[in-house]
């Protein structure tokens, strides 16, 4: 039990993101309302984004912007240490991922508007019965 607790404390960031991700996944699977499903999808994406950002963190490091880069007394290129700055790559990937997630969320909402115009409901089971009635 104590070992497990130590494990959790050492990796608590991953635990939090996985719990958040599972909340999103649960919403996607079991919620009946399409908008709630989309919100679940967004929570899922947020968990992934937080996960990537936490990977880029380094102890004793600052944000990935070189200090004293230009101007008088600027830092020489040899003096820049990789351990002094956080990993910029996950930041880049998530920066684009955030905007793309907003754009895809927009498309998903557009489809939801279309669905509502067609069936006048956003509840999944009601949509299913309407479709069945239409086939008959």
């Amino acid at each position: 039990m104590e070992q497990l607790l130590q494990e959790i404390v050492a990796k608590y960031n991953y635990w939090l993101y996985i719990i958040l991700m599972m909340i999103g996944l649960y919403a996607i699977i079991s919620k009946n309302n399409l908008i709630k499903k989309l919100v679940g999808m967004n929570i899922f994406q947020t968990a992934i984004i937080l996960f990537f950002i936490s990977i880029s963190y380094k102890e004793q490091a600052t944000i990935p912007i070189i200090r004293n880069a230009h101007g008088p007394g600027h830092v020489s290129p040899e003096a820049i240490q990789a351990t002094a700055y956080m990993n910029p790559l996950p930041h880049v990937l998530m920066l684009t991922a955030i905007v793309v997630s907003v754009a895809t969320f927009g498309v998903a909402l557009a489809i939801a508007v279309k669905v509502y115009g067609e069936y006048e409901t956003l509840e999944e089971d009601e949509i299913r019965t309407r479709i069945r009635e239409k086939i008959k």
């Binding site: 990935p64 912007i65 070189i66 880069a69 290129p77 820049i80 240490q81 990789a82 990993n87 910029p88």
Partner: peptide, 15 residues
């Protein structure tokens, strides 16, 4: 990226 980006591109913001 961290050690050479400033030298190669003159941009301090590595992201």
């Amino acid at each position: 990226y961290i050690e050479h980006a400033l030298q190669e591109t003159e941009v301090p913001n590595l992201v």
